[in-house]
């Protein structure tokens, strides 16, 4: 019974995931694309929960959905008219064909590698404890095994914040420059 429920949830979430991803890539209005991405994030959070990553799912929704996407929407709203039309790529048709081929090739290879070549190595996942993926577990790992990653990540965030400020202020002082 539980298996069946999980399967249904999985199918639904997967469907939403793919559909929203395709929506992001295909809509011409970037505002709608951003909204689709929010949907993508939500379905991914469901999938993370199914995989036992409770903390990650929460972080996904809070950080990604709550911060990053809000920033996106803000910028899109700020740019307003300039983002009305986000056209598709132009250029020689052979590039389109090559693109599709390359993407298809990558997909095929991954599927082949994972599903067929792994020799059944991915078929049996071990049982996990109830505290798998809990904030306590994540926190312990962050502060013991992966402390350096933790610290470096925070430095990167700091750098990004500084970069954002610099980019913003630069524009103000050089108002009226010619187009590059």
């Amino acid at each position: 019974m539980a298996n069946f429920v999980v399967w249904c949830v999985w199918v639904g979430a997967a469907f939403c995931c793919i559909a929203s991803a395709l929506a992001v890539v295909t809509f011409s209005n970037p505002f709608f694309s951003a909204l689709a991405l929010i949907g993508n994030l939500a379905s991914l959070a469901v999938l993370y929960l199914l995989l036992g990553g409770a903390f990650v799912a929460a972080a996904q929704v809070l950080v990604y959905g709550g911060a990053v996407m809000v920033m996106f929407l803000f910028v899109i709203a700020y740019l307003g008219d300039k983002t009305d039309q986000a056209p598709w790529a132009s250029g020689p048709s052979w590039q389109a064909v090559a693109t599709v081929l390359a993407a298809g090739a990558i997909l095929t290879e991954i599927i082949v590698a994972v599903a067929l070549e792994s020799g059944g190595g991915l078929s049996h996942s071990p049982r996990i404890a109830g505290s798998f993926g809990s904030p306590a577990a994540i926190g312990r790992l962050f502060l013991t095994d992966h402390l350096i990653a933790f610290e470096v990540t925070s430095i990167v965030l700091l750098v990004a914040a500084v970069g954002g400020v610099v980019l913003g202020s630069h524009a103000r002082s050089l108002q009226g420059d010619a187009r590059s």
């Binding site: 250029g91 590039q95 090559a98 693109t99 090739a105 990558i106 290879e109 082949v112 590698a113």
Partner: peptide, 21 residues
């Protein structure tokens, strides 16, 4: 064009995957 460069990277990845597999 950034696009061409990215396409080149993607194609390279595809080829390398074949080689590794």
């Amino acid at each position: 064009l950034v696009r061409s460069y990215v396409l080149a990277i993607a194609s390279g990845v595809a080829l390398l995957a074949v080689v590794f597999l």
